[in-house]
């Protein structure tokens, strides 16, 4: 079979056109994916969960357990917990047990220090302290972060509210505040003080807690 030169050229031209079109589609898809990923990363929607079946008005008294500290900063968990307890009590929504009373409860319930308590341990602790719920938390980041010549303070905290009666997690929230901004990169400055960042993060978490 003889194929004319013009037909071959026409076929190659069509093939080139489809390839270009496919490349453009791929590029568009890639860009869209990148945008979606970027949007997800920069999402402002809070990272929180509320148990839809829980009546939060039943929670009158709360014990805030010592937070787990995953940072290198000594006593950072104590500082953040103290701010959280103060701010939570200031809302007037719940009564927060004094830290010394919580320590007594932990000691009486024989919960090992620094460990995440099991459901049974939570129930036992609730019975000792006479509380409706306990809050457990993990401090993931605290202190200065560096990137190139820029430096700023950052705090990352996640909390869980656990109902004492059933041992169920009824609320979860996480907040990260501070970090290096574009202004920090361009102009320096070192970001906000640690106390301010702590208050911002804790304030956001408390807003999340009472939103449900």
């Amino acid at each position: 079979m003889q194929i004319s030169k013009s037909a071959t050229d026409a076929f190659l031209a069509r093939l080139w056109f489809w390839q270009r079109r496919r490349d453009r589609r791929c590029a568009k898809l890639l860009m869209l994916s990148a945008l979606v990923a970027l949007a997800a990363g920069c999402s402002l929607s809070p990272r929180t969960y509320h148990d839809p079946n829980m009546d939060f008005s039943m929670i009158q008294t709360v014990a805030v357990l010592p937070f787990a500290n995953l940072t290198n900063h000594k006593n950072a968990e104590d500082r953040v917990r103290d701010v959280f307890m103060n701010m939570l009590l200031s809302t007037g929504g719940v009564y927060v047990l004094p830290a010394g009373e919580v320590a007594r409860g932990i000691s009486r319930s024989q919960i090992p220090a620094g460990s995440a308590p099991s459901i049974d341990e939570i129930k036992k602790l609730g019975a000792v302290l006479g509380t409706d719920a306990v809050i457990a938390g993990v401090l993931k980041e605290y202190g200065e972060v560096r990137s190139g010549t820029a430096a700023a303070n950052v705090l990352s905290l996640s909390l869980q509210l656990i109902e004492v009666e059933t041992g169920r997690i009824i609320w979860v929230g996480a907040s990260t505040k501070g970090g290096i901004t574009t202004t920090d990169r361009l102009l320096g400055g070192g970001g906000q003080p640690m106390n301010t960042i702590t208050e911002e993060a804790v304030s956001e978490l408390i807003k999340m807690l009472f939103k449900g």
Binding site: P66, R79, D82, P98, A99, G100, E101, V102, A103, R104
Partner: peptide, 27 residues
């Protein structure tokens, strides 16, 4: 340990007939 507990505060109230117990944490 970690501040004053309720039974400890009660012991102080009963011993001294105090109206308040003030405690806290120094960071």
């Amino acid at each position: 340990d970690d501040g004053i507990s309720i039974p400890q505060a009660k012991a102080i109230f009963n011993t001294f007939k105090a109206d308040f117990v003030l405690s806290g944490k120094v960071f």
